[in-house]
Nucleic acid binder design. Sequence first.
DNA 1: TTGTACGCGTTATCAC
DNA 2: GTGATAACGCGTACAA
Lengths: 397, 397
Amino acid sequence: MDGRDVSAASGVTIYEVARRAGVSIATVSRALRGTGPVAGATRERVLRAVEELRFTPSRAGVSLAEGRHAANGIVFPNLSGPYFAEVLIGYEEVTSELGRSVVILSTKGRDLSTKERGLSVKGRRLSAHGPDLSLNEPGLPGQGHDAIRDLVRELAGRVDGLVVFGSTVPDDVIDELVASRLPLVLISHAERPGAVTLRSENVSSARALATHLLGHGYRTFAFLGAPYATGDDVDLRWQGVHEVLGDAVQPVLTAEYTVESGYEAALRLLGTRDRPEAVICSDDEVALGAILAAEELGLSVPDDVAVTGWDDIMAARHARPALTTVRQPMRELGARAARALDELIAGASLEDSHRTLDTELIIRSSCGQHPHEPHLQELNPQELNRQARHAEESHPR
Amino acid sequence: MDGRDVSAASGVTIYEVARRAGVSIATVSRALRGTGPVAGATRERVLRAVEELRFTPSRAGVSLAEGRHAANGIVFPNLSGPYFAEVLIGYEEVTSELGRSVVILSTKGRDLSTKERGLSVKGRRLSAHGPDLSLNEPGLPGQGHDAIRDLVRELAGRVDGLVVFGSTVPDDVIDELVASRLPLVLISHAERPGAVTLRSENVSSARALATHLLGHGYRTFAFLGAPYATGDDVDLRWQGVHEVLGDAVQPVLTAEYTVESGYEAALRLLGTRDRPEAVICSDDEVALGAILAAEELGLSVPDDVAVTGWDDIMAARHARPALTTVRQPMRELGARAARALDELIAGASLEDSHRTLDTELIIRSSCGQHPHEPHLQELNPQELNRQARHAEESHPR
DNA sequence: TTGTACGCGTTATCAC
DNA sequence: GTGATAACGCGTACAA
């Protein structure tokens, strides 16, 4: 407990350096950060003293004096699975390139509690069936809510700006952050006045995907996923799909966005005689689970049932059958969020900027043999002409 | 650039709260942190003022005054692939539970440059063949080295302690950290005086794995991996394998520990007529790549060639064939590192503590039909009795 | 070119 | 129970 050394754990202060170099602390500071003039000889002495004493400026001292942290934060729900990790990679890379540290916060299973979960169908909401969706230990309502609020406040206090994934932080906490004028970028969150939002496109990609499946001749569908809040990615994907397929698609909820959850839900869904011809999954991990379930049930994908994913994670290409999916630029999402945040911090008033990144429909074999385009046209001409952008196995990056 | 508000971006200071509540800043501080006595009525007024002004103590001010950051750091090479992400999950969870923030630093492709890469065979080193292993843009030697040093110093300056993965930070930088008396935990790094190290067991697990494969009757082997520094995990795995198999195992280097790298290297390795009967991979991702390569070449796994991995990532269980591997407790590794670091920060002098976590040999189908134990015994009795701990598909966690 | 002195926002030690 | 006030380590006008 001699921990009174916030200065890089070395305890050496600028005063000691100054004394050793025979100058004032102002000169040391100038010599070190190149602000203001310093005579060559003086600089030499200072640098030598710094070297000998292994001086590193105390981060807390610098932050206090500079009025900034030189650190940015990011809030995500978890790191299991490739999606958030990929976004984080892009975010960390750019942020660190900009000379700022990265502070992370995972909200894990902490419940937002005030939200109702389900899929919205034209205003109404379908409640979840299947396993109990309360992933948390039973407790007072709002418990996780308050815990998250505290954690986010703590984080907000030590960074110059924050990136927050949709559905990880209660909206009133978001509002609080906006009100505090903390530079804020929301990823995959409904647009919000005062905050910059960024996401990959969902609705029209979903329409294109659904249309493609119609072209295969499928007529009964299930949408497999665990949607959370209105306006989040999966909710939008559902909307796009539902728009094209109407009552032909049936929503089925999983507990989480994981392989295991997808497997379990698909096992139930495909175990019945009136199983759908195609299962559109909220994301690749759920889809991989669905493929496993089909295999378990002795069903062939895509002959007995077609399966599609979303994201185009690494495993999607390596799955058997290779997974038809919608590729979204995960790393770029993180990278762009980092840059937008940096601009905000620099003072840019790009508030109320809402950017959407393009996606790409990746047709592989899990949705069946690819019919000729002309055939597709017969089914839904105008829809197809507007959207469908495909790519056969064009390598990412 | 009105950024002079390091206090949670709100700009409200303890002085304003004090004035509004009609008390001194000392009382505000006491009321807020429960140190020292405060009259009930006074406390009420203070708390109300805090609420009304939305006051949050400036993190920089607190850090300076308290002499600590309430944040811990972690340095890893990258986040692509499940391994480091899983360790980070465990680390973040415990650290955040302990009330501390998590600052991350990814060294990415930055080269340590002074290291020679290869596999050590009884003192000698085999240089890498295959693709050029310099993953970086050509540059001055030591360039990445210095970049990492600066980044690590920066990180070290804003945390109370650091967890560092082996082979991500040059040894002299590690020594510098140790010398600065910054609480430090090294994961999968050779033991180092003054630093706590933590890792999963490698050598004897590798021996058990090799022994198991011998039991299958295989007689020619390849060890597929991209070893980096002496004493890192893969180096130890190689040592264990080599100890049992001797000249029957041939080391083959990949460019990275990724599916792609494993695929490419395995494609070359298995494309020849004298391909090994079994490929022992440094980790699951490389192994998944090897399986893909075999498939590409029309070879059956395990009938034509056996493949094993290491780690037991999620995909290992779902691969086809399911991957025989060595399970290591990735999340627990991160969690334990966090706890050890916390103890160090709290003042515990568990320096020179070197803990090794147990692993578990997971036999699945990628190494062939499982022969009866008695048969194994005939081959290498004493070796087996000492080590082999198997488990058939016992679910992790 | 260099030094002095103040401010950054808290915590904590004393007196009162 | 409460209030001055001295650290904490650094950046930077301003003066010299």
